[in-house]
Computed example of a mutant assay.
Amino acid sequence: MKTPKRLEEALIKLYNSFHNDELNPECCTACAVGNILDNFDSWKHLSNSHGSLELSYVGRVHENLGRKFNGYSPLELLETEKIFLEACGFKTPLCHYNPKPKNPTDKETLFNGLCAVVSHLCALDNIANVMDYSKIFEYEERNPVYKFDVIYS
């Protein structure tokens, strides 16, 4: 099965932002959606609250016109950001009095957020979760279902 272009591009951007320490859930240009949208912050106008699924007037107009941003609709982007924030330990929508993680840019925190986002993005495109490694551990009658060539150097 071929990976849709929007998914492939989003995964590459998220992978690079994670490994280059350019992922920050509290920054609209460096969060999951900010990275998917090339580090622009214009997407924040799709909602009145960061982490909300309620489209603003601008968001509703774009959604009703069928506009896509790097392949994603406004509502898909808001869903993605909400999933990212909540998987990172934030209570959404973001507000100064809502709970948040002690260190939002901790690698483990960000990894948890990215796992949830990747799962969501794959589901949007009806693709099996690319981060699901459980298949490689499947076995039948004490033998692995999938075999790998292991090269030792």
Rank of each mutant, 00 (worst) to 15 (best):
E140T: 10
N103A: 14
K68G: 02
V58H: 03
K91E: 07
P25L: 09
H96T: 13
V145L: 15
M1I: 05
F18E: 04
L46K: 02
F40V: 09
D132M: 09
K102R: 14
S134G: 04
V130T: 07
I36E: 00
K102E: 14
E63P: 01
K68N: 01
E54L: 15
S42T: 11
P25V: 10
L124I: 12
D38C: 15
N70T: 03
G34M: 11
F84M: 09
E81G: 01
Y72N: 02
S47W: 08
C31H: 13
L65T: 07
T80M: 09
H120Q: 14
F148A: 15
S73L: 12
E81L: 14
C31M: 12
L46Q: 02
G113R: 15
M1W: 06
L55T: 00
E108C: 07
H19I: 10
V61E: 05
N112W: 05
L37P: 00
A30V: 04
Y57L: 13
S49P: 00
N126F: 03
D132E: 08
L11V: 03
S49A: 08
K135S: 13
S42M: 08
V61Y: 05
D125V: 04
E54G: 10
E79C: 11
E22R: 14
S134A: 06
L37W: 06
N48F: 11
S47M: 09
L77E: 05
V117R: 06
Y152P: 02
K5H: 08
K2G: 01
N70P: 07
P74F: 13
N126W: 01
